[in-house]
């Protein structure tokens, strides 16, 4: 660990550390407060709560909470991370780094899902759900059978395939000796020829109107294409909306984009496609599995008028008790007006 600091400096720093009484600032952290925040899990399993879950259960939870971005088989949709596959690709061009092919510790998967997933609804999973999802991801990677059950008891014994695939930073030993000393100043090479040009690849963002952007060969999959262009506003009542308000609404919509797509070819994700909902009866987007709470209100005749949309977005869980939407809501009237204008502008 002393690679990055002179060993002597490191020892000096540590040995001169003063065990002072301090300034008396702050207050004692209470045990329940520490328990609420200290949730990290180490490679040996330290930090895991009791619980268990099997791969088959995990498949159901995964389909419900993860598959919108990561795919039914953890294969990843668009630019969203692939969680399965990629074995044997690490030494090839464009390696595929997944939980199975790359991640060195199982604890990392459990810890990350538990604290940071699902995207947009973090820290909402029960421990048994996390165990089940992790078991399913292992199953998706062909690392366990479908009857495999993961628990706090068998967790530490699970070794990941790429556990030995990492070395500690060795740049100072392997690189520094090559690249120190007085550099060449004259006649350093015989000729200079262009070997690669950015203009040829032409993937630099251009924001000019009407100009097609060349997609990267490595990216720009279906999800991005679907997000790229909202439908053109054509109808007359739409033309009356202030374009600046629509533009502002498009910005506000960034808060929604993780779960909702708009535009031609958009697909339902965690939330339904919102291209053509304004002024329409609620709960009608084809193929989306609405909460029973929203479905009930739709049956009672809920229509997405501007007024209803704003009321919903101000406090989703209050307007539709039992909605699946985890969004906390928009507080500012300006944002509510803007998002309403934007979604109205998308209506066909």
């Amino acid at each position: 660990m002393s690679k990055f600091l002179e060993l002597t400096t490191a020892l000096l720093l540590i040995s001169t550390f003063a065990h002072a009484d301090g300034l008396g600032l702050g207050r004692d952290a209470l045990p329940e407060e520490i328990a609420a925040w200290d949730k990290d899990v180490s490679p040996d399993g330290t930090g895991l709560p009791e619980g268990s879950g099997d791969a088959l259960t995990g498949e159901e939870v995964f389909a419900d909470k993860c598959a919108a971005c990561h795919g039914d088989f953890a294969e990843g949709i668009g630019n969203w991370p692939k969680l399965a596959g990629g074995w044997g690709t690490l030494d090839r061009e464009d390696p595929v780094k997944t939980v199975g092919s790359y991640w060195p510790y199982l604890s990392t998967t459990w810890d990350y899902i538990n604290r940071s997933m699902p995207f947009g609804d973090a820290q909402s999973l029960e421990p048994d759900e996390v165990y089940a999802i992790v078991a399913y991801i292992l199953y998706s990677n062909d690392l366990v059978d479908d009857d495999f059950e993961l628990s706090h008891e068998n967790f530490a014994g699970f070794e990941m395939p790429n556990a030995e695939g990492f070395i500690v930073d060795d740049r100072i030993e392997t690189e520094f000796p090559k690249w120190v000393g007085e550099p060449c100043m004259e006649n350093c090479k015989d000729e200079v020829e262009v070997t690669m040009r950015a203009m040829v690849l032409d993937v630099t963002p251009q924001v000019e109107s009407g100009e097609a952007e060349s997609p990267s060969p490595a990216a720009a999959d279906t999800a991005d294409e679907a997000m790229a262009e909202p439908a053109e506003p054509v109808e007359e009542h739409i033309a009356a909306i202030d374009p600046a308000l629509i533009a502002a609404g498009e910005k506000v919509f960034r808060k929604c984009k993780a779960c909702h797509l708009v535009g031609d070819g958009a697909k339902n994700r965690v939330g339904p496609v919102l291209t053509d909902i304004m002024g329409k009866p609620a709960g009608q987007v084809e193929g989306f599995n609405y909460s029973s709470a929203l479905a009930d209100m739709a049956d009672e005749g809920l229509v997405w008028s501007a007024e209803n949309l704003k009321a919903f977005l101000t406090n989703p869980k209050s307007f539709i008790a039992g909605t699946k939407m985890s969004f906390v809501g928009l507080r500012k009237d300006a944002e509510l007006d803007a998002i309403t204008a934007y979604l109205t502008s998308l209506a066909r």
Binding site: D91, P95, G165, V168
Partner: peptide
């Protein structure tokens, strides 16, 4: 681990 680690040509990664 999964990010901010640097994979070398032989498939071994620096952490």
């Amino acid at each position: 681990t999964s990010k901010y680690t640097d994979t070398l040509a032989d498939g071994i990664s620096r952490k």
